[in-house]
Design a protein around this nucleic acid. Structure first.
Lengths: 151, 151
DNA sequence: GTAAGTGCAAACTCTTTGCACATGA
DNA sequence: TCATGTGCAAAGAGTTTGCACTTAC
């Protein structure tokens, strides 16, 4: 949980203008355990700023991404946003569409990054690691279908 | 390099109707070392079928994805398609936008998958691993910018 | 005070859908 | 033969842009 004060302390040095709307967008993404879609971010911000528009949300997300605070995760039809930029894996449920960070594998992702950077002579600045499948709740409900297409 | 005959042998058992357009789309994606965008696939298929439409290309890509031949890789603003469904890492250049498979790290990706599947009790059916940065050619041209946003 | 941000509306682009004609099996 | 695919056109949806008013600094 990141407080508004902590967020301000983090964003101020970046030179961006801090408006209440921007703080709200940042707070929503940073404090969302899930990886919310733009529409979800919009809805959550609207609870505090009923007149906020999608244009402002998109604009702010772009600013926050440039500042290195969040990153866009394009999915089919829409993007989600992740505030965890450290090496990790996302778990994407093909049944309920929930997306959460895996709480294991971070070291292996970091190791993979080093391996690829050296072995492929490719200068890496960031990464995205997704695993698609079924979360425990959905796996319990229904046996895995034979054919499943990633979200 | 996959020949049309090999593709037919692979697609026939899947029960899908084999039209020349579908074969052309499949051939383009399977034989593209890069991970072409829908528009690029469209343009390449048009060399052989000048009257093909984007609707047919989209439809065919959906069929091929359901059949487990290709997978969609959503990027900001557009999707690319990958015919390599085995565990591997993609290298995405933030400068020239080229996307290629890493020729190292496959074992580590597979190991990471096992690790996550066991540790997170998440039933995995597929994965996407991207590293964003600068390909050797672009890294040589320009020093890495301080701030870079993933494609 | 002024450069930059917001809300609103329109525009843009990628993707999907509906339908008549064509075709693979 | 006939269920399914194709081409064409229009619609849908996510995202971006333009602009007058507002605001952080």
């Amino acid at each position: 949980m990141t407080t508004q004060e902590e967020l301000v302390a983090r964003l101020r040095p970046l030179g961006m203008r801090l408006t209440p709307q921007r703080l709200a967008v940042a707070e929503v993404v940073v404090n969302s355990g899930d990886h919310p879609t733009v529409k979800e971010i919009f809805e959550r911000v609207k609870e505090f700023f009923p007149y906020v528009t999608l244009a402002t949300v998109y604009s702010t997300l772009g600013v926050l991404e440039q500042a290195g605070i969040v990153r866009e995760l394009p999915f089919p039809k829409q993007s989600r946003y992740d505030a965890n930029l450290t090496p990790h894996a996302n778990l994407v449920c093909l049944s309920c569409s929930c997306v959460v960070d895996s709480d294991v594998g971070q070291d292996t992702v970091a190791e993979l990054r080093r391996l690829v950077e050296q072995g492929a002579s490719f200068q890496i600045s960031s990464q995205r690691v997704d695993f698609y499948g079924w979360c425990p709740a959905c796996a319990a409900k229904c046996p895995a279908p034979e054919t499943a297409v990633p979200v």
